[in-house]
Amino acid sequence: MSMVKALVLTGYGLNCDHETAYALELSGAVAHRHHINSLIEGAVNLKDYQILVFGGGFSWGDDHGAGVIQAVRMKTNLGDKILAFIDAGNLVLGICNGFQTLVNLGLLPGFDHDYTKRSVALTFNDCGNFRDQWVTLKVVSTSPCIFTTGLDTLELPVRHGEGKFYAQETAMRRLMDENQVVLQYAMPDGSPADLKFPFNPNGSIQDIAGICDPSGRIFGLMPHPEAFNHWTNHPNWPRIKEKKKRKKDNTAPVITPGIRIFKNAVAFIRNK
């Protein structure tokens, strides 16, 4: 079995790199954390990796729109290399600040395989503030996204101030028509949140929490799968554990949905 190598970017205010690398390792990848500058200076080569993760954090303090300056720096210094990386059939994952970066880079939504155009945005939450809470997410079963294979509904934490997905009508229609919407905020029973706060925590239109490119290989989402790397990350785990105990259910906890997202990525590369 060949080694699947994942690169998690660090530096300039990014901050979820340790747990993202950990989640990838748990999923069977070899994960390296590297500073954006070591990639730019050439000490690290994208060609050595098959999964590139733009993780969470506050790159450049998010001062001029979340992910904007990171996108500028990546595009200016590494634009061609990233496009070549995608052309080679590899995977790109953007989580939270990483998702914001992907839409500013234009890697998402990547309409017509144009990976340079900004046509959707993540803007300030309608509630007017940063928010940390867990959300229920519904996976759009028709999406080609390879990261969510086999998942239907799942819970993950959101932690952001600028997560409201926004696009103008034509772009929205294309996203829906071309099955590029991957995750939607939902009610605890799985029905659409339909903009209801706090189930849709930010006012995203169409309850959108994550999208992919037409190939399904580039995926961006606001929630944090890497923060559900252990069953005790779930806010209600002591309740779930107690219920299982009463049913005399001694089965080991299943792999968290957060880790399944990373496992799907590793499996895809392995089977390529």
């Binding site: 979820c16 928010r131 944090h224 923060a227 252990h230 990350n233």
Partner: peptide, 21 residues
């Protein structure tokens, strides 16, 4: 709720708990 209380993926007991957290 304004404070990121689970970055680093280490959270075991969160500041808000219970059936409705």
């Amino acid at each position: 709720r304004q404070y990121d209380h689970e970055v680093q993926g280490t959270s075991v007991i969160k500041p808000m708990v219970g059936a409705e957290r």
